[in-house]
Design a protein around this nucleic acid. Structure first.
Lengths: 126, 126, 126, 126
DNA sequence: GTGGTCTAGACCACT
DNA sequence: GTGGTCTAGACCACC
């Protein structure tokens, strides 16, 4: 369900953070569902509980989950969650498109380029 | 010409690195042009010369500039430089599009979305 | 294990860089093995931690090792590593042979010379 | 006759130093012949006389030329000169061959490799 | 404790 | 004056 790449340069807590966002966005974890407890997940992934804790704190801070003392961590409503996520990616997308255009790429060549990327992605999914 | 955000989490030397790449890609700094000297820029931005040095080394390593002892740092030929830059952005673009599709956006709505972003950008330029 | 010549004109950080490459290529340090920590090695060699840091960064950039925050620096897989190293030496070898031929050495005398060197080396190993 | 690459990372004085060694080794400059005066060459190459001076000093130090006050700089006897040059390259050759063998290349594959390099060089000369 | 970044200030090589 | 290297010592992020 969650995989950690220890050798990656992105911090482990952030890998966990991103993994949960994906699980939530893809509705594998649904509204109100309980996340595994900090200790439980720490044992499972064989990493330090502090690291899990940090990831959960980040998820709570960004409103993907809510923490309830003595009970556990629970997924927030879908709409609220996906909105934040989309907004984030859209901003990045905009920046990158801007950058490509600043190098002199015309709107047309860029559109066909985007198109080809998306076909490539679609094929990868099969 | 170059602005530093001391509070940002991205290292100062990297901010400088990226600033110069933009200046070069946008042809504000052209082939053969001399960059400000290490000490000069350090004084101007009120940061340590070592930090500038680190940024310049990175720029040289990635072939955006060449360094000449006793003379200064100079911008490399445009073509050589832009290739590297484009490759980088294309990779990011791909990741962004992938993320959007994973949230359930269809290829069609995504294309029209990309289209609208690019028109927005074009208008900003006028 | 690692020796520094402070009086040499080649920078200390580069001496360290090259020492580790040798240790890795000769499989004295093997895949996944942990390098001494920055501070540890600094104390041992009696040089500044920054200098070690610089060497490790270079090793990481050239894909000989990977760095993991809070954990340490680790040797990368052998194959990935040796390719880069060989390419480098081949280029130097070519230059040397070119130089010898420019002094008027014929291909034949040069071959027999190379042959004798290699026998000498083989004997040294015993 | 002598070409300088200002953008190269190898110091200009060293480029001049190496250029003259080549000219002498290839007998384009012969025993007893006078080198251009410091000022003359400085004007020709459009570089600082100090830089030429430094190169000539190095050539004299390594016994490729002799300097005579008030007269100029003169090429030393060929045998003496080429001996030093060869010795130098031989040492480098040895080191590189050693390095290749340490990566596990057998003597045989290495010999055929050297052979192919030399054929390549011979063809380049045509 | 481990790596990553930064400052302050020094010395050297090159032009 | 210009880039390149190094030291000493500090602070931060991560595990």
């Amino acid at each position: 369900m969650i995989e950690i790449n220890e050798k990656s340069s992105t911090p482990i807590y952030q890998q966990i953070y991103e993994s949960f966002i994906k699980l939530i966005v893809l509705k594998i974890l649904v509204e109100g569902e309980k996340l595994p407890s900090v200790r439980e997940l720490a044992l499972l992934l064989k990493i330090n509980p502090n690291t899990i804790q940090k990831a959960y704190k980040a998820l709570e801070h960004d409103q993907f989950i809510v923490s309830q003392k003595g009970k556990g961590n629970f997924v927030n409503p879908y709409k609220q969650v996906v909105g934040l996520y989309k907004k984030d990616i859209e901003d990045k997308l905009k920046l990158n498109l801007k950058a490509m255009m600043s190098v002199g790429e015309s709107k047309e060549t860029l559109m066909s380029y985007v198109n080809s990327i998306m076909e490539e992605i679609e094929n990868d999914r099969d």
